[in-house]
Each structure stands twice: as C-alpha cells, then as structure tokens.
Design a protein around this nucleic acid. Structure first.
Ligand code: ZN
Length: 551
DNA sequence: CGATTTTGACCGGCGC
DNA sequence: GCGCCGGTCAAAATCG
C-alpha cells in the first residue's frame, strides 16, 4: 500500500511535469511561429525593396558563406552571429532609408501585399525579373553570368573557406522514389553519377518561384532501400506545416555547418551520394558535442534524452560542406550501424555524434539487439544489402525505433507514391516530421525562453503542438496535433501531415511556418554548446533578432 | 491547359 | 586546351 502510494505520488508528479512541459512547448512553438511570421514579413519587404545587392554584399560578414540566402536575404538579420546581427541592423536601416523614398519605412503596412507582390514579381524566373527592375538582377540565385558581379563578394567570401554552399544530407529508409517532406518540388534534371548506378534526381522547390532551395535524391548504392536526399539552401517563403519539420532540421543543420566551419575547419568526407571525386583535405571531426540537442539528463525526468539519429556528421563533398543526418537506423539499426561505422564514415570513430535523436530511452538502455533481427525484413528486397552482421554493434545504438514498427511493414514497396496513405509511408513521413518538429520545438525551448516574450503576437494561432512523452519507454515521443477545428490549422492527425497537397490547398497560409535559416535554434543546446557560438551568444542573437523584427 | 517530368544539350570547374 | 563531371537548362513529352 505504501509503495503504491508513493508510486502514485510520483506518477502525479510526473504527470504534472508532463503537463507543464506540454504547455510550455506549445507556447514555445507558437512563439516560434509568430516569430517566423514576422521574420518572413520583414524579409519579404526587404526583398521587395532590395535589389541592392552590392551594398549589402559588402556588408556581409566573412563567415557568411551562406547559401543562396546570402543574396536573397542579404538584408535579413543575419542570424549567424552577433556581429552579423549588428551589421544586419545597419543594413536594415540603410535599405530602409533608400526604400523609404518610395514608401515609408514602415514594414507593417505592406506585410500582406508584399506577399502577393513578391509572388508575382517572379512569375517567370529569369527574363521577366531581368527586365522588370532596371538592372537589379541580383536576386536570382541561379548563379550564372548576370550575377557574377553581384555575387563576386560572396564568392570571395566563399572562396576564403574553399567551400560552397552548405548542404544537408538526409539518409532515410524509404521505398518511394522520393521522400515526402512536405514541400513541392519540380524535377529539373537527372543524372547518373559515377560510382553509383542509381540515377540522381535534381529537384527545386516550387512553393515560391524564387525559392532557392534545391535537393537531390539518390538511392544509396549499398542499400537500395535507403534514400539519400540532399538539401541545399533555405526556403525564403513560408511553407506548409507539413514541411516545417524537414525545413527546420535542414536549415538548422545548415547554419550549424556554417558556424562550425567558420570556426573550426575540421571536415571529413565520405563517399556516398557525393561523388567520389571529392577528395579534399578531410580531417576527422568529432562531431559529438558539437551538435545541439544532446539533452543530457536522461535520468532527469524533466527532459528526455534526445538523439536524432545515431549518426550525424559533417563532411565535405565537392567542396560543399555537408552535414549528414542518418535516419536509417530504425529497423535494422545494428546493420547499419555496423555498416556506417565501417564504411560510411571510415575515419570517424563512430562516437555518439548526436544531433537530435528521438529515442526517449537513454542510450545506456541497451536496446534489445534482437530487435533488428526481428524487424529487419521490411522494405528490402531491392538491391544488395551489404550488411555486416558481423560487425559488433556499436555502443551508440540507442534508438531502436525511430519509427513505429508499423512502418517496417512496407508490404507494397514500389507503390508508395500512389498509396500515399499506405501505412509505410505514413509512418515514415509523419514520424519524420514529428521528430523534426519535436526537435524544433525542443530546440527553441531549450534554446531560450527569450522567445517567450514574443507572447501571443502570433496571428494565426500557431499549430498547437502537443508533446507527449510516452510513458512507454519503448515508444518514442509522440507528437499530437490538434484537430483541424481546434485552431483553424489543419493537420489534425499526423496522417494529414503526409499529404502536403491537402495542407497547402485547403489551408492556405494559415498553416504555414517559415524557418528562415535559424542558427539560433540549433546552437542553443545546453550542454553541448556549439564551438562557434555559445548559448549566451545565441541568446543574444535571438533577442536582438526578435527586437529587430519586432519593430 | 497548366504543372511536372524527361532528356540531351550545354556550362563552368578542375585535373592533366 | 581537353575531357571528365557535377549540375543546370529548356524544349518536348506527359500527366492530371
Ligand atoms: Zn522553398
């Protein structure tokens, strides 16, 4: 009886805690959203007024070997570093002044119209934009001749580090020809890269005609069931909630790379999607502590330990700084782990390089190795599986289930595309989303309550995001979304998340969030502070950022 | 009919 | 300068 009593008490506490966390999280998320929104507005305005690449460019700080963003959002409040911040402000004012000639300097006025306007301007990429505004080419990232001058500065900056735009490579087990990440993509090319019989497809984000984001998809040579998606750039527009997860993850990773590379030059390269040609100087990097979200306290009831994947690494391929998130570990993690440690990242001592991993169970909690043996048939069937069963399961195998078991069912591998609702897909994508979303949420949470003061400025009620830390240790964190009616935001259940179309068309702008390219979020983890930026710094940025966009 | 995919031409960077 | 190579363009073909 006594025992029971205490147990009950504990449960109560836990529940309470849970509750608190929940509300906090939802709050945070809301804040975040509103923040994004504001940011977006600001950027839009700037974009509209922009066309003044040169000056901005010049002001761009060195470590800004940004992605395309540099040009598009050259005036955005640089999130990457504090100095940036200030510079950004300055820039802001500048542009404002110049622009003020036409229309006041107020940003809020044009918010709405801006969006539309923006959309129109770029109706037709190249030519139209070219002739529209006198000579303000500038914004077209499709690099090329025209930009030459405008970019030169950037280029130089890039050259300094010998690196090109950062990329985020995501490995995920997926049968569909392309991973559903919530965005809309248009394929613009396909090529068979050397060293990999599987053709590589090139996609470009079509959500906004001006969006610089690109991605390339290719199957993994070693394991055909693994899809390697490489993202490049950050969206310059709000995107459907269904896409925020990935977007966030990638943008965060990107900024991470940036900050990382700016400080330390450790790069490691790996074969894989990237062509083998890449053979730059690659120094091993212990990415362990580097990445945020390594919520220590696994024992701490407060925060669950999060690991994104058992493997995240930074490398350089074709002079593109690349961060790789490996989400393939789920079902047959042991295999992969082995594989990975042996061939994927040969030089990397497979240390628990954690980025975000979503296993609520502590690493130590050995996961039943049998798990892999049992679950592993899944999608397979295709291609050779190179598995080194023999390889000793690495220490870091926590994370048995990134996805619910259901996902392993892939009964009809190929047909994924059509039967979108199919279990497999659903499980996969939705969870992927949830996970990332979770990360996002957690990140911002841990990152800083600074966001808190943003209060309820959020116009659209944000997508109520409720976290529920499963009671069952085996069950990873679960993301619960409010019903559509709840807040006007769609995506009631995760299943909705799977269909971007539905989201986009039915719910319009309301259900969108924009993740600029926040470095803020990422570097905020507590214990594992990013080498390049201390939490404090981050906080500072965040605050400044907020203040900035607040006006 | 608009949006997207296909696919071979085309381009710039790089190593030789 | 040449050819390989990762990428991109863009016209034609398809899709829905
Ligand atoms: Zn986009």
């Amino acid at each position: 009886a006594d025992r029971l009593e205490s147990a009950r008490a504990q449960m109560g506490l836990v529940r309470e805690e849970n509750q608190r966390l929940k509300s906090m999280l939802s709050q945070i998320v809301k804040d975040y959203q509103s923040l994004q929104h504001q940011f977006f507005e600001v950027v839009q305005e700037e974009e509209k007024a922009e066309m003044e690449p040169s000056p901005n460019k010049l002001l761009l700080p060195h470590n800004q070997e940004n992605n395309e963003e540099a040009e598009l959002l050259s005036l955005t409040l640089g999130l990457s570093s504090s100095q940036l911040k200030t510079e950004g402000e300055r820039r802001n004012t500048l542009t404002m002044q110049s622009e003020s000639a036409k229309n006041g300097n107020s940003d809020m006025k044009q918010e709405l119209s801006l969006g539309l306007y923006d959309g129109k301007i770029m109706s037709r990429d190249h030519e139209s934009s070219k002739d529209t505004k006198e000579g303000e080419i500038s914004k077209k990232w499709p690099p090329s001749k025209v930009l030459k001058t405008a970019r030169s500065d950037d280029e130089q900056a890039l050259e300094q580090t010998h690196l090109k735009k950062a990329r985020v490579c995501v490995r995920v087990r997926c049968d569909a020809s392309t991973m559903e990440d919530g965005c809309h993509w248009r394929k613009y090319g396909q090529k068979i890269a050397k060293a990999n019989p599987c053709p590589r497809s090139y996609y470009r984000c079509t959500v906004s005609p001006s969006c610089p984001v690109k991605k390339q998809v290719q199957r993994c040579v070693e394991d055909m069931s693994v899809l390697i998606t490489t993202y490049e750039g950050n969206h310059n527009h709000p995107l459907p909630v269904s896409a925020t997860a990935m977007a966030f993850a990638t943008s965060a990773a990107t900024s991470m790379i940036q900050s990382h590379s700016s400080t330390s030059q450790q790069q490691q390269q790996h074969p894989g999607l990237p062509s083998p040609t890449s053979s730059g100087p690659a120094s091993a990097t212990s990415s362990s502590g580097l990445y945020g979200l390594d919520f220590a306290g696994d024992r701490n009831p407060k925060l669950p330990r999060l690991y994104f994947s058992n493997s995240t690494s930074i490398s350089t391929c074709n002079s593109h700084p690349t961060i790789t998130l490996d989400l393939t570990s789920s079902p047959e993690f042991s295999n992969h782990d082995g594989y990975r440690s042996s061939s994927w990242f040969p030089s990397l001592p497979k240390l628990p390089s954690t980025f975000l991993s979503f296993s609520s169970s502590p690493p130590s909690s050995s996961l039943p190795s049998h798990l892999d043996t049992t679950t592993h048939k899944s999608s397979s069937g295709i291609g050779p599986r190179v598995l080194n069963h023999g390889v000793p399961p690495q220490h870091q195998l926590y994370l048995p289930q990134l996805w619910p078991v259901t996902n392993t069912q892939a009964s009809h591998p190929q047909s994924l595309a059509d039967k979108f609702g199919a279990e497999a897909t659903k499980a996969t994508s939705s969870n992927l989303s949830s996970q990332s979303a979770l990360v996002a949420a957690m990140t911002s949470f841990v990152g800083d309550r600074a966001t808190g003061f943003l209060g309820d400025k959020g116009k659209e009620g944000g997508f109520g995001l409720n976290l529920k830390f499963g009671d069952d240790p085996a069950t990873p964190i679960e993301l619960l979304r409010p019903s559509p009616q709840a807040d006007g935001i769609s995506c009631a259940s995760s299943s909705y998340m799977d269909n971007p179309m539905a989201l986009g068309s039915q719910h319009g702008p309301k259900s969108s969030i924009w993740f600029p390219h926040s470095s803020v979020a990422l570097s905020t983890s507590k214990k594992s502070a990013c080498a390049s930026m201390s939490p404090a710094e981050t906080k500072d940025h965040l605050i400044k950022f907020l203040a900035n966009s607040e006006m």
